[in-house]
Write a protein that binds this DNA or RNA. Structure first.
Lengths: 334, 334
DNA sequence: TTGTAAGCGTTATCAC
DNA sequence: GTGATAACGCTTACAA
């Protein structure tokens, strides 16, 4: 059943059927009704492929992320898909892992489907050197791309991100003000946002007159067990710390495991903070003080910007918003 | 840059270019090389829309789920997408919520993009009555559909699922054998798999000669706090229990919160079990004994079946596999 | 092995 | 308002 069949049965031309399909105003109410009736009668659905060939768009956007089962990324995907769907767009998901070659390779999957735009979710899509970011530039030559929690300045690339520097600065300040003098910082990557966070930690320490003769920031293996063991070995190696500022909630949850296992009281002997306000922070006991970096806001903003871009409106290349500290049980009150 | 441009520059016909594109064997090695060179030179990518119009497929399958940010579903999505991608298929994600009207409505988003098949992930897609499952039947008239962790018998509908009945029977048996006499069962829905799980719990109790004069299974509100409060109020209302069999890890994690808050020792005074072997079970302290229902296996199996179906091989309508108990710290050893 | 030409089912540009 | 008809960029018989 195609547009020709319908046009015959309705006694009109295919052009008219097409007009009804796209509810053009240039159709008399009478014929519109007639055509719609025939369509319904034959439960006709227009062929998506032919349609997209004519329109050069399938109203579909790509979502790239390293790992859709990551709690934080999964949330972002959820909100992005919801917003896109509410705007009539479908979402094509593509997980890439953390290796550059994989990212480049799997990006092709999305590009070969001619998506209208791509969201790159997570800070790990911006690499250190320009030539390693080339895949972003060439993609942006074709379609608008959005970096969520990442930033890079180039034409047709738009960034929406939380001010991670300020957020870590704030939360570290709070920990230091409530009596901790020997904080350590735990991270798992020095991506764009990773570096910003670390800078926040360092600056907060400097503000409080802490010296950095010894290293106080550590690249820490993920998974709760690994983090716990890492902290134990740190302690065994003579590193003294009375608070752990973690770059994400999972690391923080690992730190809680460490404290519980080694009999340290939280937040009495050790304060712990996370980042993302994810399930990890509420699932732990005690629940973890963390940063709410507003995933939902980030995603709705990004989709809204994209919709404006589709309407050829000018949109900002970079949109930053502040996070906020969520006080729970792993830090001491003022 | 289209197929005509390439054919001119390469001095061949568009048919030959197309053959190279689809790596047909009926092209001489020489011309193939020539054409490929020209393509590369002009960084040509075939138009996906035109292509899919000719092939009547975009090599894309839909993934429907209630909520992609749910830890368990997010994992399933991850594995499905990975397997599909490895087979050259793209994944279109669509979250539907738990209401029937929404499911039906958002399903259209996928159908209107002419996906080649759809995975329905989670047991909540099979409704109680036949007419409420009508949307599945009509969809299956067009394309093969897969129910992951759900089951319904109808043409072109395929189910891949864990034997939830047996798994809950096993884990409940273990809890009862190690000295618990007053188990309660916590669930959040009585979907297909929900009912199977409940039956497993009930049968295990009967096997152990437990009477059911009072109700011992409870519809419990989700979120850790709500579960904790629910159990407190249960206790306050005189329900006595020495073990909690939960239908999923999140409920179990809530039960752990309850035990910790009310000073009950785990697993001494109360045993707790979860389901799914998700992050919730390892994130809690103590870590939760749970059922590994093999998400990854389920997903790889489902995709593998789909690929066989695409090759017109006959595949089983229902594939069941067994789960396994993962022993952790919330149950007593034998 | 290669080329010609007829689809595929729409949208869009003209005339009328 | 409506109807021919030409794109859109590919795949695929069928011929050569």
């Amino acid at each position: 059943m195609n547009i020709y069949d319908i046009s015959k049965k309705a006694g009109v031309s295919i052009a008219t059927v097409s007009r009804v399909l796209n509810n053009s105003s240039k159709v008399s109410e009478q014929t519109r009704r007639k055509v719609l009736a025939v369509m319904k009668e034959n439960s006709y659905t227009p062929n998506a492929f032919a349609r997209s060939l004519g329109l050069n768009s399938m109203h579909t956007v790509g979502i790239m992320c390293a790992d859709s089962s990551d709690v934080y990324l999964a949330q972002a995907i959820y909100y992005l898909e919801r917003e896109l769907r509410n705007n009539g767009y479908a979402s094509m998901l593509c997980c890439t892992g953390y290796q550059l070659e994989e990212k480049e390779k799997y990006l092709q999957l999305l590009l070969s489907r001619n998506v209208d735009a791509i969201f790159f979710v997570g800070s790990n899509f911006v690499e250190d050197t320009d030539d390693r970011n080339n895949y972003l530039y060439t993609t942006a030559n074709r379609i608008p791309i959005f970096l969520l929690n990442g930033h890079i300045a180039a034409p047709n690339i738009y960034s929406v991100l939380c001010d991670d520097y300020q957020a870590i600065l704030d939360i570290t300040n709070e920990v230091l003000r409530t009596g901790s003098h020997q904080p350590i910082y735990l991270y798992r990557s020095l991506s764009y946002s990773g570096r910003r966070k670390l800078a926040g930690f360092t600056d907060a320490c400097l503000e409080h007159g802490l010296s950095f003769e010894e290293e106080r920031s550590f690249l820490c293996p993920v998974s709760l067990d690994n983090t716990r063991e890492f902290l134990s070995s740190l302690e065994a190696n003579g590193v003294v710390f009375d608070s752990v500022i973690a770059a994400d909630d999972e690391l923080a949850a690992g730190a809680v495991k460490y404290a519980l296992a080694s009999g340290k009281s939280i937040p009495g002997q050790i304060q712990i903070t996370g980042y993302n306000n994810s399930m990890f922070s509420t699932c732990s006991t005690p629940e973890i003080t963390t940063i709410d970096n507003r995933v939902e806001f980030m995603c709705t903003t990004a989709v809204s910007l994209l919709m404006q871009a589709f309407q050829h409106k000018s949109i900002p290349a970079k949109t930053t918003f502040s996070g906020t500290v969520v006080h729970r049980q792993t830090t001491r009150p003022f």
